[in-house]
């Protein structure tokens, strides 16, 4: 289980500091597929990076009771829209690199996914298209053999069929011990794929609900989000009125 207790995370800059995260307390159990939602700058990326130890924060994050460090970091993997692979290497070379450093690397899964998405294994990654790069980034995160797979908007630039295929394949191959935390803007698309939705707003946790619960309440995710963010659907009317008055 991943226990996240972040009381505060501040980014310091010239004009003082911004509170990127505030009082984010949550627990992630094995097997969950969590959708992490929030507006741009809500703190989704900061949260994921904090879990991985890439950011300093006030608080504590424990993986099965232990702090995240060299001894257990291999149980976490990361796929980011910024891409974390080596552009000058081929997928084949990446496989070797991962096998060298991760005892848990899933070779069979790697071959199966590369084949399924028709990705050339001997071509250098810098020659891949953006969509292919995204796919490869996610594949590596899935094949590391991690228990907690963190993905930060991994599908920016992939067409819908690509993405739909991915969700389906994921559901088919994931083991009950594997957990996914997926940060995305594609709410409607992932609504049925995830088991739980976590909402951030200006660094604070404003929503945390299981999809089952939503269904019981007969709400869908978008409506829940609109409520949570106090989205005013008539907001648009104001500007339309203002514009039509002028004329």
């Amino acid at each position: 289980m991943l226990e996240i207790n972040i009381s505060r995370k501040i980014y310091y800059n010239k004009s003082g500091g911004t509170e990127a995260l505030k009082q984010v307390y949550l627990q992630v159990k094995p097997g969950e597929i969590i959708g992490l939602f929030g507006e741009n700058g809500a703190g989704k990326t900061t949260l994921l990076k904090s879990i991985l130890g890439f950011e300093h924060y006030d608080g504590q994050i424990l993986l099965d009771g232990e702090k995240i460090g060299k001894s257990n970091i291999a149980r976490l993997s990361f796929a980011t829209c910024e891409h974390s692979f080596f552009s000058n290497l081929t997928p084949e070379a990446h496989k070797e690199f991962y096998q060298m450093h991760f005892k848990t690397f899933r070779e069979k899964r790697f071959e199966a996914l590369m084949k399924f998405f028709e990705l050339p294994t001997k071509k250098t990654l810098k020659n891949y298209s953006v969509g292919q790069k995204n796919q490869f980034e996610v594949i590596m995160a899935l094949c590391q053999g991690a228990d907690y797979i963190l993905m930060d908007e991994p599908f920016a630039g992939n067409d819908i069929f690509n993405r739909t295929d991915f969700y389906k394949v994921l559901l088919g191959i994931l083991e009950p011990t594997e957990t996914i935390i997926l940060s995305t803007h594609l709410i409607e698309e992932v609504e049925h794929f995830i088991s739980r939705a976590i909402l951030l707003n200006h660094g604070k946790l404003v929503g945390d609900i299981s999809i089952m619960e939503l269904e019981e309440q007969e709400k869908n995710l978008i409506n829940y989000m609109k409520e949570t963010y106090n989205y005013n659907p008539f907001h648009v009317k104001e500007i339309l009125d203002a514009l039509s008055e002028k004329e």
Binding site: I73, A74, F78, E82, S87
Partner: peptide, 16 residues
């Protein structure tokens, strides 16, 4: 540079 492979390197055990 280019890609943020630092995110991969910082997740490796040992002094890689």
């Amino acid at each position: 540079n280019n890609t943020k492979s630092i995110y991969l390197m910082r997740r490796l055990p040992g002094a890689v």
